[in-house]
Write a protein that binds this DNA or RNA. Structure first.
Lengths: 197, 197
DNA sequence: GTCTATAATGCGATAGAC
DNA sequence: GTCTATCGCATTATAGAC
């Protein structure tokens, strides 16, 4: 199950899928990078789809672990900004996310359901958090559902913008500042952090 | 050049590329939809890449024409919201945009340069407009470059969110409201419209 | 202009030896 | 567990007839 070989293959696959997308990536390319043959890869992951799903799980696990390791100072806006910065320090994650999301748009890809559910649950979690904290309407004047959608859209958009045209230092602060405005003044004392990307 | 056949092929290709992405789409599928064979398509467009570029040009042309047809009431925020709504009424455009953008992320696709330049020029145009109108700092407290990037990211993110999880009526108003907050209070009297998507 | 025919490649997956 | 060999399929693109 957790053999070292498996991990090596997963890491190689992360790079390849990030660099070429799901359709563009070939098992051969993954195998070559991992130092074995296509059939060796297929021994661990019975199909290309299963390989992709394993990558998505890995990405989510590592991302969660990273955020869990931060001090829980409750600065929720800063946490989200850090999540964005984290992905920028690990471009493969960001690229896999972006490419998979786009292929989910197309609808018939293996990860379509995964992406859809994730989008829903993130909005729900954030909306619930905002409602609990501020009631129906935030200091900025936006309603909680609108603000939740706007914040997540902002993050997603910044994400892609960065991938297309990287200026590393710029984007995390854009997220932080814009989010602060979207939620409203004096949000820096926000409470517990909700589930996140 | 502007033969009717060519237009038919372009329209068919728009649908197919939108539905399956660049890599996922085959010339055969385009040909079938247009009512001829693969070779017939290749007669008009010498390669798959050229076909994609032609689609991007078509999309941009139609989008511009639509916006130009609106009354220039100067409500710039409403214009941008309308641009989003327009794409939602023409899902193929939105999907082609999304898919091509993702494949541009991968970097080696034919449209990579196109997307990169577009991202830059849109930010510059919007930033310039905001600066001219409000100076370095907007009523919301954001600087012009940050606000420009945030607004465009928001639009891009909403775009994709909608593609993944459509609730048609919701998103245009999210764009309008969030943008209004990002720019600052009383932005409804904005001046001329800059170039847009 | 549009077709048939074909070349040439690349891919995912399976079967079976070691 | 990893390999060789192979099947079967889909794809882009070209050559040339009509």
């Amino acid at each position: 199950m957790g053999s070292a070989r498996r991990e090596e293959i997963l890491e190689a696959a992360l790079e390849v899928f990030a660099a070429r997308g799901f359709r563009g990536a070939s098992i051969d390319a993954v195998a070559e990078r991992a130092g074995l043959t296509r059939q060796g890869v297929l021994h661990y992951f019975p199909s290309k789809k299963r390989l992709l799903l394993a990558i998505l799980e890995l990405r989510e696990r590592l991302s969660r672990e990273h955020l869990a390791a931060r001090p829980a100072d409750g600065d929720w806006a800063a946490d989200l900004a850090e999540a964005v910065a984290f992905e920028q320090r690990h471009p493969s994650f960001a690229q896999v996310h972006s490419v998979v999301l786009a292929e989910a748009v197309v609808g018939q890809e293996p990860a379509a359901q995964y992406v859809r559910e994730r989008c829903r649950s993130l909005q729900d979690a954030l909306c619930g958090y905002l409602t609990e904290r501020h009631g129906e309407r935030l200091p900025s004047g936006l309603s909680a559902p609108v603000a939740a959608a706007a914040v997540l859209a902002l993050i997603e958009g910044v994400h892609q913008m960065w991938l297309v045209d990287p200026e590393a230092e710029r984007y995390p602060s854009i997220v932080r500042e814009a989010m602060s405005v979207l939620l409203g003044s004096g949000d820096k004392d926000a409470g517990l952090s909700p589930e996140r990307r």
